[in-house]
Design a protein around this nucleic acid. Structure first.
Length: 219
DNA sequence: GCGACAG
DNA sequence: ATCTTGTCGC
């Protein structure tokens, strides 16, 4: 589709081009059977990236399969260009899987991005698969605090445009920021995040992927 | 110029 | 993200 070995100028141009391909229309209306979480960890000294995509049974949240990848980091971390640093490794991890999940939950933003094309959008368009972004912090936009109860949410806006939602996944605990990646509506993304966050603030798929990449790094 | 800034 | 132990609170 495009090269990953690019400079920041070209990277931004690629984002402005690919944003046109993002769809918020569901690919299929069937119930979720398998949900996957994607995350990456980084080695300080060696510049090694460890990526994992863990597929869970959407019902019991048990791990079904784990896709892994390790590679040298080439692109630096630049706010707004996270996908150029992490997506290559996550794409490798995706192809390491034997089973395809119905939805991929990414650790980072989707449409809630300066150019409306965060990591979740990039992975969704590249893999042509449903994805959503779930971040712990805001990159761009503003929003009111949602009500303190789990399930409450408030729109995340940037220039009068709704780009995502602050979603409370636990009572009294800071919300996570959900946005569209590809082939899902914001409403559905919100529902799915709540469905796979029965106990903790962070959705189970992302927690599983986070635990996996940390294991990879320390072994 | 100053502050903000996913992971 | 990463460097890092205990500790206060539900």
């Amino acid at each position: 589709m495009h090269d990953w070995d690019v400079g920041t100028e070209e990277a931004e141009e690629i984002q402005r081009e690919l944003r046109q391909h993002v769809l918020d229309t569901p690919l299929d209306d069937g119930a979720l059977e398998r949900v996957a979480g994607a995350d990456v960890s980084f080695d300080r000294g060696s510049d090694d990236l460890y990526a994992a995509i863990v597929v869970l049974d959407a019902e019991c949240l048990d791990v079904v399969e784990t896709g892994r990848a390790r590679m040298e980091a080439v692109f630096p971390y630049v706010p707004g260009l996270l996908s150029f640093r992490e997506a290559p490794a996550l794409i490798d991890a995706w192809h390491d899987l034997q089973t395809e999940p119905d939805l991929l939950v990414c650790d980072g933003h989707g449409r809630a991005h300066p150019r409306r094309f965060g990591l979740a959008c990039h992975l969704g368009v590249w893999l042509d698969h449903p994805t959503i972004g779930c971040a712990k912090n805001v990159l761009v936009g503003d929003c009111r605090a949602p009500a303190p109860e789990k399930g409450a949410h408030a729109p995340l806006r940037d220039d009068d445009e709704v780009i995502g939602r602050a979603v409370r996944t636990r009572d009294e605990i800071n919300p996570v920021f959900v946005s569209i990646g590809h082939r899902v509506s914001l409403e559905t993304a919100t529902r799915h995040v709540l469905e796979v966050s029965p106990t903790y603030k962070i959705p189970e798929p992302i927690r599983a992927a986070h635990a996996e990449v940390n294991d990879m790094r320390s072994s």
